[in-house]
Design a protein around this nucleic acid. Structure first.
Length: 357
DNA sequence: ACCCGGTTGACGCTCTAAAG
DNA sequence: CTTTAGAGCGTCAACCGGGT
């Protein structure tokens, strides 16, 4: 059923039926009613493909994140989708798995699909493909991460400051053996970043950690900085190793959801008591952080607002806003709960249970 | 028989010009 | 206010004439 069918059935001209059904131009109330009745009777529904052909819009937003299963991205996507829906746009998702090639492929596919705009949490510092999207007339807003080379609207939080403030809680409580667990890809030695893994967020958070140590006059030691990769199991084994080593840390800061889950997993296996054996602060106030005991102290970021703001800026761009691209930095808050405490008086020996890898 | 580059028409809708 | 006629959007299959 197409507009000519509806027009014929309603006994009006094709253009009139199109105007009524498309919601543009004018038509008398009586005509409108006839057209709508005919459309309902015939079961007409708009052909969005045909509409896009002339309008040049698809009313869709492409969203590329590392992994929608990650609670952080899930909430961000929720924020994006809600704001998009209010503007009559639909978000389409792709996962990059922090792989630059996958991200490029996803962006290319979105360009081919002629999405009206893109929200990307970039996996790497390479931005050529994003510039291509922009020159193809598809505006791009970066989420969660900054690309230094690109002049793009960007929505982030103050990662460095947030982590510095949180780690300072540790130093103020007297901790000096403070480890940081990140789920960035490690290099060969397990402590430095691997090639292409210099994700802005992680870099900033580790920088915040370093600043806090420096401010407290604590010499930094490389073995306390662990880049464990994007699998929770990897973070887990890194923490198992770290916590059973001599001179183990008394405080752990985890920079993201995956690292936090892997860390807690390891501490459960070690039967470590939080915070008596080790204090923990995580980044991101996931829902489950208050369901466990002790409740986890966290840096909380307004994830859903972050996504919503990204979508909002993007929609403005789609509608022709020409302002110079800028970085929007939202604030985080530290939420003190029960997972942090003073330095343990003496370190109880921790060991992994038998059969535990 | 085949391959080549080029042209045409079809898809469903939006939008304009011109006329009723 | 409403109508008709028609251009055009981007892509593809089908077709065309011309060449191997």
């Amino acid at each position: 059923m197409t507009i000519p069918d509806v027009a014929r059935h309603a006994g009006v001209g094709q253009a009139t039926a199109a105007r009524v059904l498309g919601g543009y131009g004018s038509a008398s109330a009586a005509t409108r009613e006839r057209v709508l009745a005919a459309a309902a009777e015939l079961g007409y529904s708009t052909n969005a493909v045909a509409r896009s052909m002339i309008s040049g819009r698809t009313d869709t937003l492409g969203v590329v994140v590392a992994d929608v299963e990650n609670a952080y991205f899930a909430r961000a996507v929720r924020g994006i989708a809600d704001v998009a829906a209010k503007a009559g746009l639909q978000a389409i998702l792709a996962n990059s798995d922090e792989d630059s090639d996958k991200e490029k492929a996803a962006v290319q596919l979105f360009i081919e699909r002629r999405v009206d705009g893109l929200v990307v949490a970039p996996a790497a510092t390479d931005d050529e493909h994003l510039a291509r999207a922009v020159s193809a007339g598809i505006p791009v807003v970066l989420l969660d991460r900054v690309l230094t080379g690109a002049a793009l609207d960007t929505v982030v939080v103050d990662n460095r400051g947030a982590v510095k403030a949180a780690v300072t809680r540790f130093t103020e409580a007297g901790h000096t053996r403070i480890a940081v667990i990140t789920s960035a890809m490690p290099g060969d030695d397990g402590t430095r970043l691997g090639p292409g893994a210099d994700i802005w967020t992680t870099t900033e958070r580790v920088a915040g950690y370093r600043q806090a140590l420096r401010a407290a006059g604590i010499p930094r030691s490389a073995e306390l900085i662990r880049h464990t990769g994007y699998e929770r199991a990897w973070a887990r084994s890194a923490v198992l190793e770290l916590m059973t080593s001599r001179d183990r840390p008394t405080a752990l800061f985890t920079t993201d959801n995956v690292a936090t889950l892997g860390t807690l997993d390891a501490l459960l296996d070690l039967d470590a008591r939080i915070p008596d054996d080790v204090s923990v602060i995580g980044f991101d106030d996931a829902e489950w952080t208050t369901l466990i005991r002790p409740r986890l102290s966290v840096v909380s970021q307004p994830v859903q607002e972050l996504g919503g703001l990204a979508a909002d800026i993007l929609i403005r761009r789609i509608n022709g806003a020409a302002a110079r691209p800028r970085r929007h930095t939202l604030n985080t808050t530290y939420i003190a709960r029960e997972s942090t405490g003073p330095v343990p008086a003496r370190t109880r020996r921790l060991r992994a249970p038998a059969g535990c890898p």
